[in-house]
């Protein structure tokens, strides 16, 4: 490790030493969390009654007998929103590495402008979607 990288590492006090320790803790928490869920459901299994009847296992549709199967047509609009999010999220994640470096020495205005160009392209995309009426329903 040498040069700008080492400097960048040294500039960030949070980076370094406890990397594996930190994620070991996260992993341990995952174990604790899974254990919690398992213990909760095991205890629940011991406590709860189990008296099933066909009526109880029926799909609930506000009290009337269920109609058809458990699936219904839905607007494709929802899908468009999901698609828009994927595109914008890919964009948004680039903000994070940028956020950590753009104000440090040697970047400054140039990097800011680069980012603004990047954001500008996506703002145009959002504007286009808006104009095309994708973001509104009626």
């Amino acid at each position: 490790m040498e040069g700008p990288l080492a400097a960048a590492l040294a500039a960030d006090p949070a980076v370094g030493g406890g990397y594996f320790d930190a994620y070991a803790a996260v992993g341990l928490l995952a174990v604790v969390g899974v254990l919690f869920v398992m213990v909760a459901f095991t205890a629940n299994r011991l406590l709860r009654p189990a008296i099933w009847s066909p009526e109880k296992l029926l799909t609930y549709e506000c009290g009337v007998d269920p109609v058809g199967e458990g699936w219904a047509h839905t607007q494709v609009r929802y899908y468009v929103y999901a698609f828009l999010y994927v595109i914008f999220a890919v964009d948004a994640i680039y903000l994070f590495p940028w956020a950590t470096v753009f104000a440090s020495a040697g970047y400054g205005m140039g990097t800011l402008v680069e980012m603004f160009i990047f954001l500008g392209f996506l703002a145009v995309g959002l504007l286009y979607a808006w104009k095309k009426g994708v973001l509104e329903w009626t």
């Binding site: 990288l5 590495p97 680069e114």
Partner: peptide, 22 residues
């Protein structure tokens, strides 16, 4: 450790790989 952190990534991205980024 820290070789893949956001700041290192950002440094390399905005120093060396600006054009692909745009």
């Amino acid at each position: 450790a820290g070789g893949g952190s956001a700041s290192v990534t950002g440094a390399s991205l905005f120093r060396n790989w600006v054009l692909p980024f745009e």
